[in-house]
Design a binder for these strands. Structure first.
Lengths: 338, 338
DNA sequence: ATGAAAGCGCTAACAT
DNA sequence: ATGTTAGCGCTTTCAT
């Protein structure tokens, strides 16, 4: 294994200079830097990350914790983070809490206590005060994505505004009987989505002079199947059937479309459907939706963390950073029939 | 930060004994071990992974490389691997090659050369001989999952057998005009699925005395949309319409079901559909499929790697380990109408 | 079964 | 701008 002193010898400088030249920390004359880089390249030298970390205290590694991995939102955020980290020479250590229970404690005692990461991204996770405090005590920056963490900077779309926009789109088309399929308690516990989406829905309705009807709300668990089942109930009722459905996620919205078809209803002629996400399947189903950009959220999270890791830049930024979203009209929404 | 000598002092032993007691390497009397463990617990001691790695050369970290993350198969394998690694005290460093091109080289020069992992799992990736050689030279065990890597132990289902079983299921129901939607060249390049599935299909047909008809094969890219489009062509033809379709993946199979519905065909009365995977959506669509178990594949990959990492256990096992699969009959297949 | 001590390969403070 | 050098905190021979 070629080490730093091999390079130093070869380039005719000290190890310290090699370290400085290669890491970019400290001043090195351009000529020397070139010489060092040439030597390093020639010898095929690569720093030992362990030795470097031991000496510097930096790991160049950030931990990403997710509840599951096999969901579009989570894996997209992770991909975004990964991409951004790679560019900055950081590794991504993944912790998937699949299985629940014990896993979570193990993860916390495993990577927090072993100091293997410089910072942490928690996706759609509600950390306990203790967990946050532990991280804080170890001086590990933490940012959340898409989940409510007490007192921690969290990146998320403004759920109220998004739901409001979706509902207003339907309203503006002339719909007045608009149903909403939102999260149930289990979802809230598992995904920690703020139930704000329902709030935005009701706000939009009220602003339009419509009183939200209890029978037009259905809880579901964010899967296509649950969206389907909720929609069957909603649309199967021949009296007072809604002319439009706002689903809290695209997967549920697709379930609604499928249910409508099975009931012999044509979308959007008989019923309009709108979702949230811009899931990879949304385009195929012609689903109108409010797009959010999970990859961008992952990238942004990394950006914030790396900023905070840079010495001096210890400014605490605002706690809540609203992320962009965008109405994407496709063919599942239209003016109500007759 | 409480270090190993704090523990040593507190327990009244040497640092070497602490190290041995806590790591399980070397002999320590039960009494001493207990004393050390108590001290460590009391002081809240946790080894510094960097110091430990620097001294021992072990990282307790394995790298997982995937082409994408937001696909059911990939994220499931990763979840399986993660779960299994966690149990063994290993971290998982994720490398997603999303974006292609430069990313790949960076990854290879980034984690191979920095010695940050003890071993590598490559998922559905065709590594170049150079890449494999580099890993080999660095003495990093490597196992592939679901992709063909020259000369490397790879875990995968027997695609020929799987396709054959799927086709035979259809045959045994009495179908004779069986179409197949398989991968196109792009898929082959991106996912490196062996095109063996088509081979198995044709084998089954031939064995049943049926000559595979060219017009009953359609290439697609493994997405729902491409499955839909292929099926529209296949099923839209009023003459010689197949009575059954075997799709190379569940997502495509679901596309087929949707296409059938749009054409006014009833599944399985007018057309039977079978896929491969047991994707999370398969159940919802009542899709008959050949289940494969990606989580299990991830777990198995870890198991093999950890085995190889254990000193002494350097036995090279057989190169090709066929993974289990299983026919799951749901409601999308039946005897052909009249 | 336990202890003493020599590194592991680099970084960063200090000196020049 | 560059060199000298003392650690970083543990693991592992080698003794005992």
């Amino acid at each position: 294994m070629v080490g730093i002193d091999d390079v130093a010898r070869h380039a005719g400088v000290s190890t310290a200079t090699v370290s400085r030249a290669l890491s970019g920390n400290g001043h090195v004359s351009p000529a020397t830097r070139l010489k060092v880089e040439a030597s390093a390249g020639e010898l095929g030298y690569v720093v030992s990350s362990t030795a470097s970390s031991l000496a510097s205290g930096r790991m160049k590694n950030i931990g990403v914790v997710v509840p599951f991995l096999d969901r579009w939102f989570f894996s997209s955020v992770v991909e975004g983070a990964q991409k951004s980290l790679l560019k900055n020479g950081f590794d991504l250590t993944l912790f998937s809490l699949t299985g629940g229970g014990g896993e979570r404690r193990i993860v916390f005692n495993h990577f927090l206590l072993r100091q293997r990461v410089d910072a942490v991204i928690a996706i759609s996770l509600e950390l306990t005060t203790t967990e946050v405090a532990t991280l804080h005590a170890l001086d590990k920056p933490l940012v959340g994505v898409g989940g409510p963490i007490e007192g921690v900077r969290t990146l998320t779309i403004d759920d109220v505004a998004v739901a409001r926009l979706a509902t207003e789109h339907l309203l503006s088309l002339g719909h007045t009987r608009i149903a909403h399929i939102g999260g149930n308690e289990d979802v809230d516990r598992d995904f920690h989505l703020p139930t704000n989406r329902r709030v935005g829905y009701e706000l939009a309705l009220t602003a339009a002079g419509i009183t939200p009807a209890a029978e037009l709300f259905r809880p579901a668990d964010f899967t296509m199947k649950s969206g389907y089942q909720a929609a069957i109930q909603l649309l199967g009722n021949p009296r007072g059937r809604p002319s439009a459905v706002f689903a809290g996620s695209d997967e549920m919205a697709i379930g609604v479309i499928l249910a409508a078809r099975d009931l012999g209803l044509v979308v959007p002629r008989d019923v309009s459907v709108i979702g949230i996400d811009d899931h990879e399947l949304a385009d195929f189903f012609g689903l109108t939706t409010i797009a959010q950009f999970p990859q961008g959220q992952g990238e942004k999270a990394v950006e914030i963390l790396l900023d905070r890791l840079r010495p001096g830049q210890n400014q605490l930024s605002s706690l809540n950073t609203p992320m962009p979203f965008e109405l994407l009209v496709r063919s599942s929404t239209a003016r109500p029939g007759e």
